[in-house]
Design a protein around this nucleic acid. Structure first.
Length: 878
RNA sequence: GGAAGGUUAGCUCAGCUGGUUUAGAGCACCUGCCUUACAAGCAGGGGGUCACUGGUUCGAAUCCAGUACCUUCCACCA
């Protein structure tokens, strides 16, 4: 088959992806082979592919394809995450464009829009993954909010509630008074904001609600909240305030009496050392309030206006109230001073309104027990983190875990299965029907319309933590008695998980918890944590910065294989990736190299009667050994998840060894034919190389594998076995390296002395008896006639390994420089030898160290000796 | 503020048990080549006192301590 002069990825990629789909090459069913399973970190259903996805999914695909070629039953389960916050935001924004507010249309109508959006946009990112070459089992595509998976989430909630791990509690939420909604911590942007620090006098009460002459001073940025104060707090060790202990003070303007309390939380050297405690409007104050049993008074309504609890300035906006109350305080003589002050203030990402901390009732899951088991899973090595530096981070988090707030004030998501009775009590049941029954058990007269379901939905992570279980058998989570179906028992636990370290806690840790709880086993064995993809300037790729290239454009421009290589080249585990388009260019160039190499080999004429010459025989022997050795290295890299090292080893084998040395050695001169033995060996090497490359570059390898020979419909390189390493002759390989060093030394000498590579030279070798077999290599690639003994007259000489070579070079040689170099090396060798000998004469070392280590030291000793001898002889002959 | 990690060539990174790596790779750079597979290429070359300071050792990029800077995660100071 004739190849086009240039590789055209676009054509090839579409062709083979359709071919793989048509032949259901990615599909997996349980059978009697060993399973290799990966579940995709489900991308947001509304998301579009960015460079982070490319990195992540390329790694997943490499691992999957490698396992498949190792003969395992590989199954990579794809799917998407409903991503409640992100998706709801998008739908809200879209409705806003049409002038619709979600509150106006109500929950049901809104959800219709949301599902519409999902149907329209939900498949995009999966479609994009296909362009990358992802070998996912698309028949198994799942969505975290599809009915079965949603039911699993609800069952899980009921399960934990009945187990006593889910409870209702009060928590500060970030309230957006403009959007009239609570927003998550991630949606709050902290910005340093100029404000004022108001120092206010609080007079000490005489005990009957009347002020005395004594007062204390507090510093606050929010004077409009003083009416909600529940106490003044000082540090118990603060001598300045000992006189206040047990006293009561009066809130300015409204003269309400509040106690002075003591708590370590107050820093003595910040502000005045007196803190006003306002439990309803500050998260820390709320905590202090709990510790000291303080009443909670809420004086700000949902729109950010003061309510009647405030007694004054009722109905005023919080910022207007702030201005007004400062005037009032000044007039009343309570304002001591005002300082300029810069402090971080939270703003809503959506509306840019200043966030108002607001108390609300939320649902929580107790984490202590789940976390300690999940910690044990990693500590014991049942789950390996790669790189393992994350173990300590993981431990720290698991040991300091707080209860998980699982309710979200949103509509897009699984609605909390709690139903409130008219009296305010509630029941938790998987559905409305059983909720009614449960409610009637409390109050037999109740009807369905008396019940009101909780308005909140569950945190998205509360569904994604079930992912490795629910994609196979959604009936299991929440129902430990449910017998796992065939898929779940075959594919669980999965093997590897590839994801970013930023969600180690949010997602990975929680999956381990769910796995332990519902399966009695961890969900995966290895967690490969990638780095974060950054641009050249080290900034995170983000949409707002606009510094993220569109991966699809890159695929169009360079081809999917090139993009995959580009990402892998610079991605050692756990290190951030500095994205640079030149790496993708490198990938594209590699495609070109592979393509052209096959163009060369496929263009050879074979002469059936030709005999293999010595050069061909030696070349084949060498590459066969090298291939085995490199396969061993590559396998070792894969086993340690050093994917970029594995790739680099393959890259160099193909480019530097196969193309630059092997093919150059065996290629017939122009107009000549090649012998059958060498030809067959070359084609065989090429096929093995393609198989080695396939996991990282699926498209071009499939194309060339088909170009190499007749294939039946449905045959694919991805079902071929990875090439296996045979035994290899290390001594022969090292001899070849010596010869290679000689050839390179020759080339260098020629270049420096202006001698053309075409001029044939005599090469004098000393100590080269063992290299005789490889002389044809020197002949062909060095263009020299090999002679024994020393060169006469002026010669340039050099050492490669223990072999000394010299070439007649006329007047060009700089003997002095040569001597200096050799003397320096001699000195180094001698001192090294001394050290090695000292070590070997140490009895403790010889008897305690492993045998292999001692052997390698002995080899070092003999090598150094030989080298010293060679150098000394060179020096003599100079 | 708490925790973890990092600092090696212009850039991105290897360097696993301290020594044959008197510091390696890829890219970029310089020089010479359109040599019929490949200029997206070939051949050759230059470039680093391994952040800094001390310590352990015959020997340190590698182990220990301190300093500086950077990154991430957590908590964010009334």
């Amino acid at each position: 088959m004739q190849l086009s002069a240039k590789y055209n990825p676009a054509e090839v990629e579409d062709k083979w992806y359709s071919y793989w789909i048509k032949n259901r090459c990615f599909h997996s069913e349980p059978d009697n082979r060993e399973a290799y399973t990966i579940v995709i970190p489900p991308p947001n259903v509304t998301g579009i592919l960015h460079m982070g996805h490319v990195l992540n999914n390329t790694l997943n695909d490499v691992l999957t394809r490698k396992a498949r070629m190792d003969g395992k039953n590989a199954c990579w389960v794809p799917g998407t995450d409903h991503a409640s916050i992100a998706t709801e935001n998008k739908v809200v924004a879209r409705l806003k464009e049409r002038g619709i507010r979600k509150e106006d249309i109500g929950r049901e109508e809104f959800l219709k829009y949301a599902w519409e959006w999902k149907e329209e946009h939900g498949g995009i990112i999966l479609e994009q993954l296909r362009k990358l070459g992802a070998s996912c089992d698309w028949d198994r595509t799942k969505f975290t909010m599809e009915p079965a998976l949603s039911k699993a989430v609800i069952d899980t909630f009921v399960y934990f509630y009945k187990k006593g791990l889910i409870y209702r509690g009060v928590r500060m939420v970030n309230w957006d008074p403009e959007g009239l909604t609570a927003v998550s911590d991630e949606e709050v942007i902290h910005r340093d904001t100029k404000s004022h620090f108001y120092h206010l006098k609080y007079y000490i009460s005489d005990g009957n609600g009347n002020p005395t002459d004594d007062y204390l001073v507090i510093a606050t940025t929010r004077p409009e909240t003083i009416m909600a104060d529940a106490a003044i707090c000082v540090n118990p060790k603060d001598e300045r305030h000992f006189r206040l202990h047990g006293k009561k003070v009066l809130i300015p303007l409204i003269n309400r009496e509040i106690p002075v309390i003591e708590d370590d939380y107050v820093e003595m050297d910040f502000g005045t050392g007196c803190l006003k405690v306002t439990p309803a409007h500050d998260a820390h104050d709320y905590e202090i309030g709990l510790r000291h049993n303080l009443p909670v008074m809420d004086i700000i309504d949902d729109h950010g206006r003061l309510n009647e609890n405030a007694q004054i300035l009722i109905g005023e906006d919080r910022f207007v109230a702030r201005k007004k109350i400062v005037g009032m305080l000044e007039e009343a003589g309570n304002l001591v001073k005002v300082e300029e002050y810069v402090s971080p203030v939270g703003y809503s990402e959506r509306t840019n309104a200043v966030i108002e901390p607001k108390l609300s009732t939320q649902w929580f899951l107790k984490m202590e027990e789940l976390a300690s088991k999940a910690l044990e899973s990693v500590e014991s090595g049942k789950v390996k983190l790669i790189p393992d530096k994350y173990r300590s981070t993981y431990r720290h988090w698991m040991e300091n875990v707080h209860d998980w707030c699982i309710s979200r004030q949103l509509w897009w998501g699984q609605r909390i299965p709690a139903w409130y009775l008219p009296d305010g009590s509630f029941v938790v049941e998987p559905d409305e029907e059983s909720a009614l029954k449960a409610a009637q058990a409390i109050n037999p007269g109740l009807k369905a319309e008396d019940l009101r379901q909780d308005d909140d939905v569950l945190d998205t992570w509360f569904s994604s933590w079930l992912w490795p279980i629910s994609v196979f058998d959604a009936g299991r989570p929440g129902n430990p008695d449910h017998k796992p179906n065939r898929d779940l028992s075959y594919y669980y636990p999965t093997n590897d998980l590839v994801t970013g370290p930023d969600i180690l806690f949010f997602w990975v840790a929680r999956m381990i918890m769910a796995g332990n709880e519902f399966m009695g086993d961890v969900p995966f064995r290895n967690v490969y944590l990638t780095g974060i993809v950054r641009d050249k300037l080290g900034r995170k790729m983000s949409k707002t910065l606009g510094n993220s290239p569109d991966p699809l454009d890159l695929i169009k421009k360079y081809g999917a294989d090139a993009v995959r290589i580009g990402m892998l080249l610079c991605s050692s585990a756990g290190n951030d990736i500095f994205y640079d388009e030149s790496q993708i260019e490198q990938g594209r160039n590699f495609c070109g190299k592979i393509w052209n190499a096959w163009r060369l080999v496929s263009g050879w004429n074979v002469d059936p009667d030709a005999k293999q010459d010595e050069t061909g025989r030696v070349a084949v022997k060498w590459f066969d050994n090298l291939l085995s050795k490199t396969i061993c290295e590559v396998e070792d890299h894969y086993s340690k998840f050093r994917i970029s090292d594995a790739l680099m080893a393959i890259y160099k084998l193909f480019w530097d060894d196969f193309c630059s040395w092997y093919l150059e050695l065996v290629k017939p001169g122009s107009g000549r034919a090649i012998d059958p033995l060498t030809y067959e060996a070359s084609v065989d090497f090429f096929e093995k190389l393609l198989k080695l490359i396939h996991p990282v570059m699926p498209f071009i390898t499939e194309e060339l594998w088909h170009a190499m020979g007749e294939r039946r419909e449905g045959e694919t390189i991805m079902f071929e076995r990875s090439p296996k390493a045979g035994p290899y002759d290390a001594a022969f390989l090292s001899a070849f390296d010596t010869v290679r060093g000689l050839v390179m030394g020759l080339r260098s000498l020629r270049q420096q002395n202006g001698v053309s590579p075409k001029d044939r030279l005599d090469l004098y070798l000393e100590g080269a008896d063992s290299l005789q077999e490889l002389f044809p290599v020197l002949d062909k690639l060095g263009n020299v006639q090999v002679q024994a003994g020393a060169a006469e007259g002026a010669s340039a000489s050099f050492i490669s390994g223990t072999v000394k070579a010299s070439v007649p070079m006329g007047d060009y040689v700089n003997v002095e420089e040569e001597r200096r170099k050799l003397e320096a090396e001699l000195e180094h060798q001698k001192s090294f030898l001394e050290g090695v000998r000292r070590k070997l004469s140490n009895e403790k070392f010889v008897s305690n160290a492993p045998e292999a280590v001692v052997a390698s030291e002995r080899k070092k000793e003999s090598d150094a000796l030989a080298r010293i001898k060679a150098i000394e002889e060179s020096l003599k002959s100079l």
